[in-house]
Write a protein that binds this DNA or RNA. Structure first.
Lengths: 142, 142
DNA sequence: CACTAAACTTGAATGATTCCGGAAAATGAA
DNA sequence: TTCATTTTCCGGAATCATTCAAGTTTAGTG
């Protein structure tokens, strides 16, 4: 469904280029991929891409809200298709696997801080830390 | 109250050293400080410290759960004294200021993901993004 | 088809953090 | 106290993710 990607780009006033389409295809295929992973995948699709181009694309698409960047502590940045829902992520402490988690309460969950110190709060970002199913099995087997 | 810091270290089976005490004093005085900021402060207190020593100390104390490391997207790691409460943070999008926010619901708030994909969830980390009081004023003045 | 801004390229630089091997110091025992 | 052992600290180099700079290419427009 490459046409949809092209439309996304045009709608954001961004030129439709091979690197951008390849990045979008890759992020769609592998959500939560890192810039490096994406670079490899794009290179496989197109022959070559500069690291710089990948970062430029990632930046442009993130600014245009076509992609969303997340960055769990200690991990390089990761990218997923932007969706209006404000879903969160579970990260496995053992293997780093990441899964999406829909908002617990339906809408923005912990959006109401009890004491906001005068801050105007615009968004809440939640990361759940835990152990993924595979690692639970692995641990049992130790 | 340096004696308390020394006790914290001994209780964790860590040797009591000047760099460690200085790091603890600094983090207590300035929560959410970066490794670099801490390095400068420690150097002021002790004359000199290697960057390496600071990172080593920060690592040791974090592993021992004497310090807690947080890392809002795009920022270098920041440190605060570890406290059992699971409080969260508000980060100003404009200036990067960080403040503590007690748990909204009293206990772990968003701890219950609606769909956890089989993950065992151990902790929820929440970061509120917004604008701090100072920056709100600044913006008004634009 | 030509033009111009936007996007891509190569190559070097930066910031945060870690790896390495050796020197210094803290603790427990003699 | 002095020693021995082990931890911690030091200097220096290395790594990783990301960005800066400057020149070249290309998408989209007229």
């Amino acid at each position: 469904m490459t046409s949809t990607h092209a439309e996304l780009l045009r709608a954001a006033d961004l030129r439709v280029t091979a690197p951008r389409l390849a990045v979008l295809a890759e992020v769609e295929a592998h959500p939560h991929a890192t810039a490096e992973t994406i670079r490899q995948a794009v290179r496989d699709r197109l022959g070559t891409v500069s690291t710089q181009a990948v970062y430029d694309v990632l930046h442009a698409l993130t600014d245009a809200r076509i992609l969303r960047r997340i960055e769990p502590d200690g991990s390089p940045g990761r990218f997923e298709l932007y969706r209006g829902d404000n879903h969160h992520h579970v990260v496995c402490r053992r293997c780093g696997a990441i899964s999406d988690v829909p908002c617990a309460v339906g809408e923005a969950p912990c959006l109401h801080a009890s004491d906001d110190h005068g801050f105007t709060i615009e968004a809440a970002e939640v990361i759940y830390w835990g152990t993924c199913p595979e690692c639970q099995l692995a641990r049992t087997g130790d």
